[in-house]
Design a protein around this nucleic acid. Structure first.
Lengths: 351, 351
DNA sequence: CTGAAAGCGCTTACAG
DNA sequence: CTGAAAGCGCTTACAG
């Protein structure tokens, strides 16, 4: 078996020009492996069209020289950067922190870096961030939710940058998304409260972003279906969620609606506040009122009493969305365009 | 006054080669402005050596074409990327979220993008993240704290990448840092509690990272100076901080040391938990025990009672550290290498 | 103050 | 399966 030996004059590396960086370059690797830079390039990227023997030589040479491809050169030549722009609403909500960490870890393994933009739950800010990011030509895009401005949608569709939506499941077969049904999850919790014999079930929410409103809808429809929906038991507050706000909302609800026998908070932070505040008001949970949350944060199991909540798969969503994006960026179609990862009703002692 | 007119043959833009991107390029701008690409490049970067009339023409041309410089090309040619790597311990602590947002905003205005690495309070993870980031050749580095592994310090010193340390003030005149004295802030709070007549002052801390231990030290030394330090009143827990943990620690301290008349929590999250939990235990704050926090998070003023705490300048630290880094990346020496931004003792009703 | 040349380190597109 | 050539879009370094 004859393997060609690359015979370009082997210059001794004495005369590095003034601009060279000193780091090993593809040409260095090729020279050491006695192949052309092109073959080295192909071998290093794992293209299958390279003779295994040569590929082996290239990899050994690269390892020996500690070669690391220059991302700028690669981006310039291929017109594709190694960055992924991730747009999330907030970092104050631990949900998104966990989502982000899963994304970052997956992308990193795929050789991509994560650029984070915080939209502050504002579609126009999201649009602005997207425009900025697009100027830097990210290889891919990860957006939160399905509610974008028209301009944002246009930017995404007109560009060729692969994009995956997270946390909700798109109906559109053109789009790619990974999430679960927020409304169904809320409906499941509401049914659970009904099964527990609760009849005056309030819904308390903050922030009021799209997903929160979907939860509200799930609660509404479930109660309406059995004739128990009462709009006066909707407690909606536009302020950001926090443990403290939960305590205040709990106080207000109990004061205004003493006959409420269950409160379904749109997230765990609020529910934690209620649980912590209940003793100050002399209210027993779940004796007087049942408390339910949403997300199953780490502390929910530690509360007194432990919190009944919906376990949401944000880590899986992050990992999976990043994986789908990875295939897309690799010009492969993912098996499923829109993935529903489901949720889990976690019944503890607060209901 | 004679202004040279660039007279290179003006090719009509019909024959874009197969690889061109379709976006306006520096050459397009130069052609339209009738100057050389070099002059266009200089004008666009605001170099002062360009004739104002030509600079004006260039800027007009760029605006007309909607020209945006290609970051990859720029990075390749100049060997300097437009990315800054920021290493922070956690995103679960709101402190760092606020720090990060300030950094990101400042850097963005300077034309840089932020790459975030989460170290999870682990120097080895920090080292690993730094290695990875360095492969991508960031233009600058922003690290949290002054406690790094030897290898990390070596990586920073051997490379020519500008680096600014945040949250603490370095003594080393070679380094650049922006922060405040954690120990002094804790000492100030401790003195305040003493002035309020408290005599059995406990210190309760979680996570136990370097800055938390500096606070512990400030508390220790202040009490030791007046002969009131009691090591049995140190409550140290390695778990991450959270409101819930604060509630549990409060319960434990009160149960174990019923005569404690003040608890200085190492951060507001823990203090919030104590404040929320106190009523369940029938304990009056500050009547039975005074509660103090650290950081002054948004909710601290809303608590019942409002929390006495240390207001820390994390937004200013982020902004200032990013500014210092911006000068450094611009090859300018900042006025001050190590900046102490101070802190503020915020006395409310919990002490 | 301005410009021609060369080069940054890769990959695309083409030819064999 | 492999390679020579050209080019990605800028900036450096030099010359005037």
């Amino acid at each position: 078996m004859h393997i060609g030996v690359y015979t370009e004059t082997m210059k001794i590396d004495v005369s590095r020009s003034g601009r060279a960086t000193g780091r090993a370059t593809l040409a260095d690797v090729a020279r050491l492996a006695q192949v052309s830079p092109m073959t080295a390039s192909r071998a290093l990227r794992g293209e299958s069209t390279v003779d295994p023997v040569l590929a082996e030589r290239v990899n050994a040479a690269a390892a020996k020289l500690g070669y690391v491809p220059d991302p700028a050169a690669r981006a310039l030549a291929s017109q594709r950067s190694s960055h992924v722009a991730v747009l999330i609403p907030s970092l104050t909500n631990r949900l998104f922190v966990e989502l982000l960490e899963a994304i970052q870890q997956t992308l990193r393994q795929g050789g991509f870096q994560t650029l984070i933009g915080i939209t502050h739950y504002d579609v126009l800010e999201e649009e602005q961030l997207l425009r900025e990011q697009l100027l830097h030509r990210p290889a891919g895009l990860l957006l939160t939710g399905l509610e974008q401005s028209k301009a944002t949608r246009k930017l995404i569709q007109s560009g060729a940058t692969p994009c995956v939506f997270m946390m909700e499941v798109a109906g559109d077969a053109q789009a790619f998304s990974v999430g679960f049904s927020q409304a169904e999850a809320a409906a499941a919790m509401t049914r659970h409260l009904l099964e527990r014999g609760r009849r005056r079930i309030a819904f308390a929410a903050a922030q009021l972003d799209a997903r929160t409103l979907q939860r509200l809808q799930g609660w509404r429809e479930t109660l309406a279906a059995c004739g128990r929906h009462d709009a006066r038991l909707e407690w909606l507050n536009e302020a950001p969620s926090s443990v403290e706000l939960g305590a205040r909302m709990f106080e207000q609800i109990v004061a205004a609606k003493p006959r409420v026998d269950a409160i379904f908070f749109c997230n765990d932070d609020l529910a934690h506040g209620a649980l912590l505040h209940a003793p100050r008001m002399g209210i027993e949970v779940p004796g007087h009122v049942a408390i339910a949350g949403f997300n199953d944060l780490a502390e929910s199991a530690q509360m007194v009493p432990p919190l009944t909540t919906i376990s949401t798969p944000r880590t899986e969503v992050g990992r999976e969305a990043a994986s789908v994006l990875l295939s897309l960026m690799n010009r492969q179609q993912p098996a499923v365009a829109n993935r529903d990862l489901g949720f889990e009703l976690v019944i503890r002692q607060s209901t």
